[in-house]
Amino acid sequence: MSDASLNPSTTTAGSTQPQEAGFGDFFALLKPRVMSLVVFTALVGLLAAPVSVNPVVGFTAILFIAIGGGASGALNMWWDADIDRIMKRTKSRPIPAGRITEGEAFGFGIALSAISVIMLGLATNLVAAGLLAFTIFFYVVIYSMWLKRWTPQNIVIGGAAGAFPPMIGWAAATGSISVESVLMFTLIFVWTPPHFWSLALFMKSDYDEAGVPMLTSTHGRRVTRNHILVYTLLLVPVSFALAFTSIGGPAYLIAGVLLNALFLRGAWNIWRRDETAAEADGYATEKTVFKHSLYYLFGLFVAILIDSALRSADLLAAGPINFWGV
């Protein structure tokens, strides 16, 4: 079977002769920047869980969650090779650059998917393994193959794939799903649209050229700005809901107040701008909000870790009722 036949959306026109791939090329297939977020949020989910986990088991769980996340990235690059060749942001990736063939990426992604799910199940439990398998399936099939090229709501629904890691980490520790893990999922799920739409505002031409129906392309930047503000407003109560669970605490409450205020101000500034002003300064505000959105998510999950550490040291009460004094 030829490489092109593996991806029906890819043609051989304009393809380059593959060079010999190195370790760095296969590592790039794993989308290490995305994988770092997967690892971090999964680690928070595992450490915040009210169950003591053997360090070796915990390390093994995070390792295979990371490998599963990387497998999703490799399969996404396999499927999206045709549009990656068009977009400036992605044309230097291993496949469009001709360093790895689509067939090699496909085989690599499938192998890592199977290894990560099986080993996570053996190291922890079937709930965690099942969630990891579903995450890979959701990202590759539901998001990459279906939603991404079909609907401007692609990043809204598809954002669920990036929201599962803390649930997987929690399940690896507890063998179950809880209110806390669902709220961590919901936090990332609602955060994803304004995060990526702020990127799309200053990367619009890339999506236009590739034919990806991002909201900026299908409905325009004005509608996208409206959506960023609405989703950021929805994000505030979702983020604060975690403070009223067993993993809430003073660190999370303080971080929530400061980070939500910063994110809301950024979303408001994006909403009130017109395209003339945005183009004049090179979309500086949009780029700043995109960067701050990363700090937002990182800061809230760090706060969960801090409160978990304080609770482990018996410096906090063990539950939300005692913490809030009601």
Rank of each mutant, 00 (worst) to 15 (best):
T60P: 00
H292E: 14
I83W: 01
A261D: 04
P165C: 09
T218C: 12
G14C: 05
R265I: 12
V257Q: 07
K88T: 08
T218M: 15
L253K: 08
R89F: 04
G98D: 02
V141S: 12
F298A: 15
G107R: 13
R222H: 12
I142Q: 05
P94K: 05
L259Y: 05
R85V: 00
G130R: 15
Q153F: 13
L187F: 06
E104N: 01
I86L: 10
A309E: 03
F240S: 06
T192M: 06
I228R: 02
L229M: 10
K287L: 07
T192R: 12
T41H: 11
S116V: 02
W150A: 14
T245N: 05
A163C: 05
F189K: 14
F108A: 04
T216Q: 07
Y295E: 03
A160H: 03
G220P: 07
A243S: 10
I142R: 08
S72C: 09
G175Q: 10
G107Y: 09
E286N: 14
D307W: 04
Y231L: 04
T192V: 13
I306G: 13
L294D: 00
A97I: 00
M167V: 06
G103C: 02
V179P: 02
T41N: 07
L75G: 00
E180N: 07
Q17T: 14
M184V: 04
W268L: 15
L43C: 09
E286R: 15
A251D: 01
F23I: 10
W150S: 15
S293F: 08
W78L: 01
S92C: 10
S308G: 15
F134S: 13
M77S: 06
W150K: 15
V56R: 15
L259A: 09
A114Y: 06
I65N: 04
I136S: 07
V326I: 12
T218D: 11
A111L: 11
A267H: 03
G169F: 07
L242D: 00
A261N: 06
A97H: 02
A277G: 15
A4E: 10
R85W: 03
H227P: 01
T10P: 00
F134K: 15
W170R: 12
A4S: 10
D80A: 11
L126G: 14
T12H: 08
V51M: 12
